[in-house]
Write a protein that binds this DNA or RNA. Structure first.
Lengths: 330, 330
DNA sequence: ATGAAAGCGCTAACAC
DNA sequence: GTGTTAGCGCTTTCAT
């Protein structure tokens, strides 16, 4: 068996209580005693048993994160931020993948609830009522989704879309297609909202297409529909779809950005590498993960900080798929 | 506070011991009693406190996985497999990202060791001696790396490379460049080994270049060197590098596969989407993650199964970057 | 087949 | 400032 607090106490010739204090509330112990205890602890390689500690304090020192798909770089980016920030505060992190199944997401959060101090949930599609239920079971922080009364780390997708439209309008585009992602996704609603506001402000035409599956195949399908609408610019829900659109347009001999401009959303690594490189919106995925942890830990603090919903900025990345429309001769 | 075993005992009018038995060793309890207890437990929504259980049994019901980079789809693929298989056996999984720092990998495994029943380690670069040290601290399973005496879930990279060379030789290539990844990486050594064997067997020329950083920029750099060697085919250490090569060749006006053939390794999603689509080797990442869990759990079993190192097959995926060399006129 | 009781390793009153 | 002690929720002897 590993070395316990009693071993340290014996060797340092103090009580277990003093050892415990030296480790967790150093100010309660005389400096000389503390040093001796710490020295012995280090010497013996003592590591507190967190399970035992948790049993008494009610805190586990663990965080959980639930994501729909670990193969999606968006979520793993968030995960990476969560992991890194959690470790900074000596928290370990449980991870679970729901395989895009909302019912599984609920079960996973519930299962985690007993082993963690709080859960970070990435679930664009879970019903709001269920999200509230989960928030009752554990401290919950939402990623990229707003539900009243629940802390959230958000990315300003609306502003990202505004930047996209401002960019396209500045280039001279007057008729723009938006390729919707899933209707039920909070992200899609948010992106569409920002886009509609910008489009209205500029007084340009919007052709609202879809919803399409937010994948490569969705883009292939959407491209033809957008073309048939006679638009000069296509705004895709995300990069993957945009890549599908790009491939389909190339196959049909439509030049990008010569005949039609195209934008994505997410700034996947691939967006920079494809040909022509994709104009898109960069999402602060890792910072959002870190922010999620900060929000969670601040709620766990002594006074249980306020419920905050904070938004991180997105950034338009102009690359090679956007240009003035070919019929703009002014 | 949550409902405890005492609440269940009281309500079911039995002792806590009986409740405990009904839950963990049903055969020790009369059927009628057991049913009553289970009914009450379900009714009250009782969930055993795993920390308390672990305190006594010494088993946590948790697994850990340490990876170098959560932004690398290879590792998240493994993670996904691990997560899914672990959940099948009611294990929860801790994840940690080392940011490619071997020293951090060691610390993370050590930190996890006390909270988990075993750790799955993806660490191509950690020194063998350190790996052995870690294996003494906890039950360890290695992913895609062989160290004597330590269980491992492997992918047959050697065989993948053999398939690549067989393919290129069948097309008529006689002078082939290999772009090395990091010298210290187990994967690179393994791929190179398989490649050398195949090259020798076929009696074709091999130009061994690098090492290069296993990234896009590494490919950009490597492309010019390979071209200068007058090869007709380039075998890259992985897909990302191959993508860099592809971009550089396009910029220099060298047609692929017209003037030179190119292969990658990993079969990233992007390999199928780029233009021309990349011939590469598909790695069974998720199955390997699942296998890792199986190996770990079998070692944890009552009798502590044998130390096994098992290898899963890789598969050449022929796409559009490989063709007969242009000077083959026979 | 069931109950009583002794801890697992630790922290938090409560004494002194 | 330090020691004593009572549990946290659970499993597991040892009785019965």
């Amino acid at each position: 068996m590993a070395v316990t607090i009693r071993d340290v106490a014996r060797q340092a010739e103090v009580s277990v209580a003093t050892v415990s204090r030296a480790l967790t509330s150093p100010e309660l112990v005389r400096a000389s005693t503390r040093e001796r205890v710490l020295a012995v602890a280090a010497d013996l390689g003592y590591q507190p048993n967190l399970a035992a500690r948790g049993l008494i304090t009610g805190r586990t020192g663990n965080l959980g994160i639930v994501v729909p798909d670990l193969n999606n770089p968006f979520f793993t980016g968030v995960l990476k931020g969560v992991q890194s920030q959690a470790r900074q505060s000596s928290y370990a992190v449980f991870v679970a993948d729901s395989d895009e199944d909302p019912a599984a997401e609920r079960d996973l959060v519930l299962a985690m609830a007993k082993q963690v101090d709080g859960v970070i949930l990435c679930s664009p599609g879970l019903e709001e009522q269920v999200v509230r239920e989960l928030a009752r079971a554990t401290s919950l922080v939402l990623i990229n989704r707003r539900v009243r009364g629940i802390p959230a780390a958000l990315m300003s997708s609306g502003s990202g879309m505004r930047q996209v439209i401002d960019h396209l309008v500045a280039l001279g585009h007057g008729r723009i297609a938006y390729l919707n992602g899933p209707r039920t996704s909070w992200s899609n609603r948010e992106r569409r909202r920002g886009l509609k506001a910008a489009v209205q402000r500029h007084g340009v035409d919007l052709v609202d297409l879809g919803p399409f599956p937010p994948r490569y195949e969705g883009g292939l399908q959407a491209a033809d529909l957008a073309l048939a609408e006679g638009v000069t610019a296509i705004v895709a829900y995300n990069d993957i779809m945009a890549l599908g659109v790009l491939a389909r347009l190339r196959d049909r001999g439509v030049s990008v950005p010569g005949q039609v401009s195209l934008t994505g959303f997410d700034d996947l690594m691939f967006a920079a590498l494809c040909q022509p490189a994709l104009t898109t919106v960069a999402m602060p995925v890792e910072p959002t993960g870190r922010l999620g942890v900060d929000l969670l830990l601040s709620r766990l603090g002594r006074d249980g900080g306020a419920i905050r919903q904070e938004e991180l900025d997105t950034q338009l990345i102009v690359r090679a798929t956007t240009a003035p429309p070919s019929d703009s001769r002014n």
